[in-house]
Design a protein around this nucleic acid. Sequence first.
DNA 1: GTCAGACTACCAACTAGTAGGTAGCTTAAT
DNA 2: ATTAAGCTACCTACTAGTTGGTAGTCTGAC
Lengths: 191, 191
Amino acid sequence: MSLDTRTILIETAIDFARLRGYTAFSYADIAEAVGIRKPSIHHHFPSKEDLGVAIVEAYMAEFARRLSGITVEMTDPLLRLEAYAGLYREALKAGRGCLCGVLASEIAALPPRVQLAVRQFLALHLDWLERTLAEDGGFGRLRHDIVPARDAGTVLATLQGALSMSLALRQPRNFEHAVGGLLAGLAHHSQ
Amino acid sequence: MSLDTRTILIETAIDFARLRGYTAFSYADIAEAVGIRKPSIHHHFPSKEDLGVAIVEAYMAEFARRLSGITVEMTDPLLRLEAYAGLYREALKAGRGCLCGVLASEIAALPPRVQLAVRQFLALHLDWLERTLAEDGGFGRLRHDIVPARDAGTVLATLQGALSMSLALRQPRNFEHAVGGLLAGLAHHSQ
DNA sequence: GTCAGACTACCAACTAGTAGGTAGCTTAAT
DNA sequence: ATTAAGCTACCTACTAGTTGGTAGTCTGAC
């Protein structure tokens, strides 16, 4: 059963990290929230760096699962992008940032292996977005002058930024504005 | 002359905060970097919250000065936006984040007065952007269907996100991609 | 009887912050 | 001109609390 404890620890740590960042959460925080003693966490994650890597990998795996789900469930690239934006909207409603967005902001303060995991996570986003932007087979839903490798970066940047800004300003409307503008800019007949 | 020390402390703290965030820098870090003893910092800034507020306000004042400069020096709204993006590019080249972007990511972990200062900083950005997007008097350089209040959020989100992502991924090219896409989307005849 | 998973009881290092003191400069009163 | 009070700016030495992390023990399931 203690695989459960491990999972609960990861989920709790993810929640703290999305709210406060890596540096600002402690083993003591998690111990209290989970209802376990602090040293018991070290049994599952010897060092905080281990925990950090574990939460990024777990969050990334879940994210990859959902991205695949989007790809399978819909074929219209614009709908896919809207679904992608929906993942961020979900975070916004929960009052949490995107884990990799939050950690990216403090990348220089992260232990090396956590840094690496964050970069892989971001690369996963860019990869999926690039493929999604490139696959407009027959739909003609996206602007014709789209450059997938270029515009994937714009989509990621806008959504990460919009989530972060909206959370900080406590103005969900801001997020919708940014997303609306972004998708309108990518769609055909946007003008 | 010890106003100098105060200034040096603020500049050093800003640098640390832009690199690591608020939680991850300490009085000890600054003391060592400046060449002063830790308690002496408390002489200038009794609490870390005081220091936090001071660095945000100082950074915000400098930013406001530069935004005014842009408004005075050029009238073409597209050039103004390019100059605005240039401020972020400058940060990217220095390997530093935007102070308010970094702090926004850990907003929940910040002391109340620092939170407030960060929100004011972000509001300053949005305000300037909104006015810039609204003033297309006679130029016709921007798309006609621009909604300043909406698109200001998109510009802020994209640039903050692009800076953060590019720094984390160590790929300056990513920033240029995002900025290029953003400006192309705002300009008239973008299609 | 082994071993995973939890515990109690620690630890060194670091956190922001305090107490109390000193050197040097400025100001004002005599 | 001298003196004294008060200021700024820094110092050493310390505190209480927190950080991540360790050692060794108990317990219950296989």
